[in-house]
Write a protein that binds this DNA or RNA. Structure first.
Length: 934
RNA sequence: GGGCGCAUAACUCAGCGGUAGAGUGCAACCUUCACACGGUUGAAGUCACAGGUUCAAAUCCUGUUGCGCCCACCA
């Protein structure tokens, strides 16, 4: 069979085949059958945006969650990985509007209904693409249960939640200052506004003329602003009540230069910092959050000067109709003409930008729907505090707490068309707001029948917040809801801790009376090799599919910097990923497994996961190693008997590998359960490569070629058993290659049809055998030492050398004699090594190395120059001296003896004794060499 | 203005009280019958800096410097 297998693993040929197989066999399906007594394990997939195509962030969460889910499934859980998609209101609408723009259309040209239809059509065409792409990664979600946030039943859940919150007084309508995105023409929640720090701006000063100044008093009051155009909405200027400069202006009014308005001077010690600027602050209640509050304190008029598209309205007098930034220039120009300009200076400031459109957000006064957050936040805080939900890594708890403790009410209405329309109807006659599950026939207040539904839709995150139960059928009490709520783990990026995780906590506790998930697992952001965020602007994005299928840099770069000249794009890309300089023409087809292993190998503690493309190569090589290890094994194990029980092992190497297997599997399980996939992957990588391949397979060769029949049988069965179990242990991380190989390998008769349905090995898969591990360590030490001597003296790798091994310990000598075949093979000696007591005469022309209890003596038959050996011995002595001195120092310290734990002291004593013995033996060797030279 | 995090081998990162680790890269040798996507061996680190606690500190504490992130309505 192995002869049919190519020499190198070809993921492209293997991976799609098995995914189809899993789908055909319903491997990923969770069970809702009444008789199913298995415990459940549930993960809700963070629903990707319908607009999106797969990026590294998806690949990361897809991989991590799949590892968790596959592991639990193998452990015998009824595992549900609930997949879905998010309609992503503002993001999707923006994308479709951009498409329309290319056709010289706006959504208003189409009208609401036609526009929404268009979005649906587009969603149907390309919406599922991202999920198909996740399948390339091997994601084992229960695709039959796929949900979309705008599905009719999820829509119903949204309506239900809204109505209930409204009836409970937790949703209300209010007119206040909100964040307005003039580009998308919608209000935004605080979270959707990003603060761009350190922007270099201008602090502009101008004067208001004082009306009826006192004889010798000031004729004007100078204010400073970064947004001069807002002065058109000024309804006061504030000074500090104790500011000595302005005492004489208390109670005075100012003349607005452009509009017919008198602007009062008010006293306010909250808004005004005497030290800053001129100590006089213009107050624009309708366009600034501080000023809004100030306006409330002084009952000032709120004058809105802006249209929803960012142009100025009729309140702006001569500036009406101008775009906001044009108006800024114009206002400055006119102020200068009027002789009111009083200078300007550079000023570092923070600009609020829309997360979606990137435009600068304008505070405007508007009537919107809000959720009262404090009553919802309290239970969410308590649930984490008392451990009903655990957040990992733990450092995020503080962030979570801080946000919830200072939470502001959540503005949930959006002036968009794509989304869940708000279930509220305004009465045309009495303006009463009717909130209801269905369109009401008449106004509940006046019985008028002409009602108009609120055209606004809900913030996308409102429906996302219901995800862990809306996907299971809520508000119906479905079987699935009973069984799969709450979820076990919520795994996602920390960037949506507030947007999503915290809101699910609040909604889940409120509507379901229980936390939505037992654990929150947060991973970091995927960034480029230099640590920079991935973006088209920086040209540093990597399409995960290019890593799986392979792509030359030309096309990688074209995708990373769309439309940019190739040379420039390549330069950007290479700057972002220095390691690609040594990677030839592009990414080779590393395969889904290699990508997954690589992503798993990053510690989740890291806030930024800096992709280093070279690393993919490393894990591709690992896949190949796994493949070849099995390919080799197959030549020996086809007739092996594999049962669920570990084979009886008597040979040292078999006992050893079983012991190592058990411990490795334990580490892998712990890694997955502790959300330390990096530790799990590392343990398995090390086991397979450094232990199974480098030692066990090599050690098995002489057994198969010249062992007794009994030895061969035992080794064959052990090898087969270890291979089969190792594949199972690797399966959650590398599903494709393990399935491919597992299907070829001898396995227990009652095995299921897929490795994905096998049990995950436990520590008892290999009985721990400390004696075997210790003995093998001794052998490894001796063999490595002999190899080192060979290399150092430049003995040709093919040449065989005489070898003597000396030890004062009879048990060790016994071990060395018994394992002579192993030693002979791995060191390449000319016949069995001579095992001797320390006082045996030394091999002629030989070199000595001391490792632990063994003196390794390699005969070099005149290849050696004695001087070279003295050099080597001197080096060895020097190192030993250093170590001995440091240990002695510790043992001479009375405080150490007194305070350190007994076992530490004993250990140090032991080490010292061993080092001193080694030293003595090296001294002897030195003596000998000196004699030879003399 | 608050809060959090990071500084360990050329690079990317683990380790977080008991004598410095991995992968990649680098050097030498080897086409040995699973694998050159390989094997053997090796070189390479005052664990950012300065204090402190401790018998013992990369690891705990304090401060400094340099990065990064989050929150906050400073004209």
């Amino acid at each position: 069979m192995s002869s049919e297998m190519p020499k190198a693993y070809e993921p492209a040929e293997v991976e799609p085949r098995w995914y189809q197989y899993w789908m055909d066999h319903g491997v990923f399906r969770a069970s809702t059958e009444g008789g199913d007594q298995r415990p459940t394990y549930v993960v809700s997939m963070p629903p990707p945006n319908v607009t999106g195509s797969l990026h590294m962030g998806h690949a990361l969460f897809g991989t991590i969650q799949d590892v968790l889910v596959r592991h639990k499934r193998m452990q015998g859980y009824n595992a549900l990985w609930q997949p879905g998609m998010d309609h992503a209101g503002i993001a999707t609408q923006t994308v479709v509007e951009r498409q329309l723009k290319r056709e010289n259309l706006t959504r208003h040209d189409l009208g609401r209904e036609a526009f929404i239809e268009r979005v649906w059509k587009w969603k149907e065409e390309s919406g599922g693409r991202i999920l198909k792409q996740m399948q390339v990664l091997g994601c084992s979600a229960d695709w039959d249960r796929l949900r979309f946030t705008m599905d009719p039943d999820l829509n119903r859940a949204v309506t239900e939640a809204f109505v209930r919150l409204y009836e409970e007084g937790l949703i209300y309508r209010d007119t206040r200052l909100v964040n307005w995105d003039v580009e998308s023409r919608t209000v935004l929640s605080d979270l959707e506004v990003e603060q761009e720090e350190g922007v270099s701006g201008e602090l502009y000063e101008f004067a208001y003329a004082v009306i009826d100044p006192e004889g010798d008093g000031a004729k004007e009051l100078v204010v400073a602003t970064t947004r001069p155009e807002t002065m058109l909405g000024d309804t006061a200027v504030a000074v500090h009540p104790e500011d000595p400069r302005y005492q004489h202006l208390h109670g005075k009014k100012l003349r607005h230069p452009f509009v017919d308005r008198e602007v009062p001077i008010v006293l306010d010690d909250i808004l005004v910092d005497m030290e800053f600027g001129t100590g006089a602050v213009k107050v624009t209640p309708a366009h600034d959050f501080n000023d809004f509050a100030t306006g409330k304190r002084h009952s000032l008029e709120e004058i809105n000067i802006m249209n929803l598209d960012g142009t100025l309205n009729e309140q702006a007098g001569e500036f009406a109709g101008m775009e906001r930034f044009a108006a800024r220039k114009a206002v400055k120009k006119r102020l200068a003409e009027l002789g009111l300009e009083r200078g300007s200076r550079q000023h570092s400031m923070t600009l609020p930008r829309s997360q979606r459109s990137g435009t600068i957000v304008e505070p405007i006064i508007s009537t919107q729907w809000f959720v009262k957050m404090e009553p919802l936040a309290k239970p969410a805080l308590a649930a984490v505090r008392d451990g009903r939900t655990e957040i990992r890594p733990e450092e995020w708890v503080k962030t979570y707490n801080h946000w919830l403790e200072n939470i502001q009410d959540w503005c949930i209405s959006r002036q968009l068309w794509w989304g869940h329309q708000i279930p509220a109807w305004f009465c045309a006659k009495c303006d009463h707001v009717n909130v209801a599950r269905e369109a009401p026939a008449a106004c509940s207040k006046c019985q008028h029948t002409e009602l108009r539904q609120d055209p606004d839709v809900l913030d996308t995150w409102f429906s996302s917040g219901l995800w862990p139960f809306s996907t299971l059928g809520w508000p119906e009490q479905t079987e699935a809801l009973q069984r799969f709520y709450p979820s076990s783990d919520m795994e996602t990026g920390y960037d949506i801790l507030f947007f999503w995780v915290a809101r699910m906590m609040m909604m889940g506790l409120h509507f379901m009376g229980d936390v939505p998930f037992r654990r929150v697992l947060l991973h970091g952001m995927v960034v480029d090799e230099t640590g920079a965020k991935m973006s088209k602007v920086k040209g540093n994005t990597i399409d995960p599919l290019d890593l799986i299928h392979g792509a030359d840099f030309k096309s990688v770069v074209a995708k990373a910097s769309p439309g940019a000249p190739e040379a420039e794009a390549l330069k950007k890309f290479q700057k972002a990923y220095p390691s690609t300089a040594k990677m030839g023409q592009g990414f080779e087809p590393y395969g889904g497994d290699a990508l997954r292993m690589t992503l798993c190998s990053y510690s989740p503690q890291a806030k930024r996961i800096a992709l280093s493309p070279k690393r993919f190569e490393g894990y591709r090589n690992f896949c190949n190693k796994v493949y070849n290890a099995v390919r080799y094994s197959l030549t020996h194990i086809e007739s092996a008997q594999v049962t669920g029980e570990p084979p009886k092992a008597t040979l040292l190497i078999n006992r050893w590998i079983l012991s190592r297997l058990g411990k490795t599997v334990e580490q892998s399980t712990r890694g997955i359960e502790d959300f330390r996939l990096d530790e799990g992957t590392q343990a398995l990588y090390h086991f397979l490569w450094d232990e199974l391949c480098d030692w066990y397979l090599e050690a098995s060769k002489p057994v198969f070629s010249s062992g007794s029949d009994a030895e061969k049988t035992e080794t064959r069965n052990t090898l087969a058993y270890v291979i089969e179990a190792t594949l199972r242990a690797l399966h959650p991380y590398m599903p494709f290659i393990t399935e491919e190989l597992w299907q070829r390998v001898p396995r227990p008769d009652d095995s299921p049809e897929s490795i994905a349905l096998c049990s995950y090995p436990t520590a008892s898969v290999g009985p721990a055998d400390e004696a075997a591990e210790r003995d093998l360590e001794t052998l490894q030490g001796a063999i490595s030492a002999a190899r080192t001597i060979r290399t150092e003296y430049q003995v040709h790798p093919g040449a065989k050398v005489p070898l003597a091994l000396k030890s004062s310990d009879a048990a060790v000598r016994d071990l060395l004699s018994t394992q002579h075949v192993l030693i002979e093979t791995l060191v390449k000696t000319d016949g069995p090594p001579q095992v001797q007591a320390p006082d045996a005469p030394r091999l002629a022309g030989s070199v000595v190395s001391v490792v632990g209890a063994v003196d390794v003596v390699v005969g070099l038959k005149g290849l050696v120059e004695a001087s070279k050996e003295s050099e080597r011995i001197e080096r060895g002595l020097k190192k030993l001296d250093k170590d001995v001195v440091s240990l002695q120092k510790r043992l001479e310290n009375p405080k150490f003896l007194q305070n350190a734990p007994q076992e530490v002291v004993a250990e140090v004593r032991e080490q010292l004794a061993s080092l001193e013995a080694q030293r003595a033996r090296l001294e002897d060797a030195k003596q000998l060499v000196a004699e030879l030279e003399g």
